[in-house]
Nucleic acid binder design. Structure first.
Lengths: 108, 108
DNA sequence: AGTATTGCTACAAAATATGTAGTGGTATGG
DNA sequence: CCATACCACTACATATTTTGTAGCAATACT
C-alpha cells in the first residue's frame, strides 16, 4: 500500500488495509473540507482558501497536491475539480451532512 | 456551534455549519481509526493503541477525551465503546471500507 | 510481598499547520 | 507600453499538534 503521498507513506498504511490509508488521507487538515466544497463545482485556489476559513496557502497547496496524487481531484481550465473518483467519494461522505445537524443539537 | 472540544473551538466551526465541525473532529489524527476499530466491540486503551499503529498515548488520550465530550464514545466496564450516536456515525462511514479497496487498486 | 499489566501523565523532539510577506504570471486600462 | 491589479503559488518564521520514551499509581495474579 504505497500511496503516492509526497514524502513518507501514509499514516496508517502499514497494516496494508486500504481503509486505513484512506482514513489517514481524509484525516489531514481540511482534506474533507476541500472535497466537500469542490462538490459544488470547480473552484480556484483563492476561493478554496476563503471557504476553508483562511487555511494557509502552504497547507492548501500541500493538501491539493496530495489529493491530486491520489486522483481524487484534478486541475481543469476552471480551477480545481473533483475527479470521477472524487465524486464517488463525496457521495459516500455526503450523508454526514444531514447527520451532523442532528448530532449538533446535542450541544445546543 | 460551540462543541465541547477541550481548548479552542473546533477548526471549521466558525461558519456555524455542523458538517464543518464534524469534519474537523473526524479530521484529527486517528479519530476515524478509533471509531472504525470500536465498531468491532469495546476496547481497552492498550488495544486501541496497538490497533492504531502505536499512536502515542498522549494523542490517544486526547482524542478519546474529545470523542467522549462529543458523545461519540463512552467508557464502559469493558473499556471504551461507541455510543448509540457513535454507531450511527460508523454506519455512515462504513461504506468507505469497500470503496477504499477499489480506489487502492489505482496505486498498485 | 513481588511481579505484571493497564491506564494514563510528563516532557522533549519531530512533524505539521499558520500567518504574513513576497514573487512571477497573466489580464485590464490608459 | 507601462502601470495597476489580480491570481496561484513559494518562503520562512512562529505556533500548534503529534510522537516517542519514560515513568507512576492502581488493580490483578502468584
Amino acid at each position: 500500500m504505497a500511496l503516492p503521498i509526497p514524502g513518507k507513506p501514509v499514516r496508517g498504511s502499514k497494516t496494508g488495509q486500504p481503509i486505513m490509508a484512506l482514513l489517514d488521507l481524509l484525516g489531514r487538515s481540511w482534506a474533507m473540507g476541500i472535497i466537500w466544497h469542490l462538490y459544488t463545482g470547480p473552484s480556484t485556489f483563492r476561493r478554496l482558501q476563503e471557504y476553508c476559513e483562511s487555511i494557509s496557502p502552504t497547507t492548501l497547496n500541500k493538501r491539493l497536491k496530495e489529493l491530486k496524487d491520489c486522483h481524487l481531484i484534478e486541475r481543469t481550465l476552471e480551477g480545481y475539480a473533483l475527479t470521477k473518483s472524487g465524486e464517488e467519494l463525496f457521495e459516500l461522505i455526503e450523508p454526514l451532512g444531514s447527520w451532523a445537524k442532528i448530532w449538533a443539537k446535542n450541544f445546543k
